[in-house]
Design a protein around this nucleic acid. Structure first.
Lengths: 229, 229
DNA sequence: CCCTCGCGAATCGTATATCATTTGAGATAT
DNA sequence: ATATCTCAAATGATATACGATTCGCGAGGG
């Protein structure tokens, strides 16, 4: 029916293509923080010109996944400890707001799905696998945010998550007992929403959920501080 | 001493130049919401090629000042009522956080400067001029945020302000009694900071300062609702 | 042995050229 | 009269070409 669906997508612009290409590699860790993004090399690999590649990189820069210095080039963003702290703080803020704003629109079905995911998280607690846990964690919050009425705030949440992805294999990883607490906090948030709690109460609970993680990481860091550069 | 300061700046890239060019015109209202940004025309006007102009426009798009549709082009963002609501809501959130985070670092000098600006705002209340008031309002908050320890959150505040600028002459303008309340709320926020109040209390006061404006505008809107598109 | 200078390769920045898409005016048919 | 079709002009998207900048490496001097 549709005339030009020979391959699959109607059409994807070259710059979108380049964006996905790079983005995928950052997300899955093939491009680690600090990795240099050379326009010409990526262009050749994708068989496009450097112009769309450059555009894609500037977009990634605007999202904070990449740093770009004039006449020098781009690299996957290096996130230092203070940077990490700032991002987590911001994430606490916007996740808290997103949760509170979404709460009135959360149906019993949403609650059930969120609980189901959280129970799966609970079951992964023995034979623990960080990446799996993180994935479920994102799913959990994604369900809560499905009905978020403010797309800006939701966008900020996603930006924060993206930024966190860059850290995956970096020095900031997991804190032992934290996962267990996390599951309990999820349950508490669900209960608050279910009970139709005050918006501020929900916001602060969701916020604390994030700041608690931050505190745990910082505490662990202080026992194994990063070498100062 | 410095070898290449013939004119002024060391050098500004063409895309930065294009960015400033467009940005200035959006800020001062020469490019109103909906105004079409034609690559070739801007390029000719600046005597550069379309490539840097395109880059500048994509940057503005990422900041939300411009919308860009593939193969169609760019225009200064049109902000609808719900959009306005979302932006204000987000601004309330991030300004609240920025104020609370800054509070511990605010010196008596900062307080004095902020008060001075606020008093100037108070004096403009008779023979009122909206643009002047808005300008001072930004200055006031800028002083409070000078010591904000989290650059991300500060950045979000600035983005919100920029987005609001686009509205300048649009349907959402000023609500009569609001300016007076605004000055009082500023004073209350300063007092809280001065007293070393709890962070949450400061945050909520700053947040309410913004949401009160939002409520006032919406109330006014409902008396003079926008035509639905 | 270390520091400084200058050259050249690598890479970025921008201009120009070309291809692709959209859009609207006018023609044509219903 | 309205709807649809066709085509050309306007504009965006991308490729290619070229000039500009950075940075490392090796020669020469201290």
């Amino acid at each position: 029916m549709s005339p030009q669906m020979q391959t699959e997508r109607s059409t994807e612009s070259k710059s979108q293509q380049a964006y996905r290409f790079i983005r995928t590699r950052i997300d899955d860790g093939r491009y680690v923080p600090g990795y240099r993004l050379v326009l010409g090399a990526i262009a050749r690999e994708l068989d496009v010109s450097v112009v769309p590649v450059r555009e894609a990189i500037r977009l990634l820069e605007a999202e904070g996944l990449v740093t770009f210095e004039r006449n020098v080039g781009a690299q996957v963003a290096l996130i230092k400890e203070t940077e990490y702290l700032h991002t987590m703080q911001t994430l606490a803020l916007v996740e808290g707001a997103a949760t509170a704003l979404s709460a009135p629109f959360i149906s019993p079905d949403h609650l059930a799905r969120a609980r189901e995911i959280n129970e799966r998280m609970r079951r992964t607690l023995d034979d623990f696998e960080p990446s799996r846990f993180t994935e479920l964690n994102l799913e959990f919050h994604a369900v809560l945010f499905e009905e978020c009425p403010n797309p800006h705030i939701l966008d900020l949440v996603h930006r924060g998550w993206n930024r966190m992805k860059v850290l995956r294999d970096s020095s900031f990883s997991f804190v032992p007992g934290r996962a267990h607490e996390s599951v309990e906090e999820h349950e508490r948030i669900l209960e608050l929403i279910e009970a139709g709690a005050d918006a501020l109460q929900v916001e602060l609970a969701a916020r604390r959920h994030r700041t608690a993680t931050l505190d745990a990481v910082l505490a662990a860091q202080s026992r194994h501080p990063l070498p100062s550069p």
